[in-house]
Simulated assay, not measured.
Amino acid sequence: MMEFTNWDIFRNLLLAARWTVALSLVAFAGGALVGLLLTALRLTGRRPLQWLVRIYVELFQGTPLLMQLFLAFFGLAMLGLDISAWAAAALALTLFTSAFLTEIWRGCIDTLPRGQWEAARCLGLGFGQTLSRVILPQAVRVALAPTVGFSVQVVKGTALASIIGFVELTKAGTMLNNATFEPFKVFALVALLYFALCYPLSLASQYLEKKFNGTR
């Protein structure tokens, strides 16, 4: 059995945490881009597009992320597509994130008075102009807190990527535990690192919620 000092364990977990952060950033950025497109499609008023977006959101919200990871990794491989664990995890988490962000942003836009859409039309503004100049500047203030808050779920969701072999923080913890046979020490450090990643985001979400609720 290899001998690992406390520093060896912590250093290896810290190195693995970089991949947790990288996967979280990719999933959140990709999810935000897809979510923004889906939110815009849902606001067009065209029923076929609204139904397609609704089915997409219900599908990814109503199924476990673990199953989505399995389908992205093993399902695509069965179709003949050679996909790495990193790409499969990034794809599944991006789709998962986009579904939740679409619903969060739709809800935030729905809190704005409906009369603002009608007033913009009376001024001759088109759909794109109304969305970019009137609705989005106000909706962003409402959406910031829940969006940052949801990023915590994205970080924690990356832990499931270990099941398809992607070596992030949780997978590294499992490997170190198998080598050291010290589960309490190893997973306590894993939990501490997750806390260090998530707690600042939770604080930021609470701060933004108080700030913008107080100025509305």
Rank of each mutant, 00 (worst) to 15 (best):
R11Q: 02
N12A: 14
N12S: 09
L13R: 03
L14M: 11
L14K: 02
L14T: 15
A16K: 01
T20I: 03
T20M: 03
T20A: 09
V21R: 00
L23R: 01
L23C: 04
S24A: 15
S24H: 03
L25C: 10
V26L: 04
V26E: 02
A27Y: 00
A27F: 01
A27I: 02
F28P: 00
A29P: 00
G31W: 00
A32C: 05
V34C: 08
G35E: 05
L36W: 14
L36K: 02
L38D: 04
T39C: 13
T39S: 14
R42D: 07
L43A: 13
L43Y: 03
T44P: 13
T44S: 15
R46E: 15
R47S: 07
R47Y: 07
L49T: 05
Q50G: 15
W51N: 14
L52P: 14
R54T: 11
I55Y: 10
Y56L: 10
Y56V: 14
E58M: 01
Q61E: 14
T63A: 13
T63V: 08
P64E: 11
P64S: 13
P64R: 10
L65E: 00
M67K: 08
M67W: 15
Q68I: 08
L69C: 04
L69W: 07
F70T: 04
L71I: 15
L71Y: 14
A72W: 05
A72S: 13
A72V: 11
F74K: 06
G75L: 09
L76C: 06
A77T: 15
M78V: 07
M78A: 11
L79P: 04
L79Y: 12
G80F: 04
L81N: 05
D82A: 09
D82P: 09
D82C: 01
D82E: 14
I83Y: 00
I83K: 00
I83R: 00
S84C: 08
A85E: 13
W86Q: 08
A87Y: 00
A87E: 04
A90E: 04
L91P: 01
L91Q: 02
L91W: 08
L91F: 14
A92T: 05
L93K: 02
T94E: 00
T94V: 02
T94R: 03
L95V: 06
L95A: 11
F96Q: 02
S98V: 03
S98D: 06
S98H: 07
A99V: 04
A99H: 01
L101R: 08
L101P: 12
T102A: 13
T102Q: 06
W105G: 08
W105H: 13
R106Q: 15
R106Y: 07
G107V: 03
C108E: 15
C108I: 09
I109R: 06
I109W: 15
I109L: 12
D110R: 12
P113G: 09
R114A: 12
R114P: 06
R114K: 09
Q116M: 10
A120D: 02
A120S: 15
R121C: 01
L123H: 08
L123A: 12
G124D: 02
G124E: 03
G126F: 10
G128D: 07
Q129S: 14
Q129P: 06
L131W: 02
S132L: 14
R133N: 09
R133F: 01
R133C: 14
V134Y: 03
I135N: 03
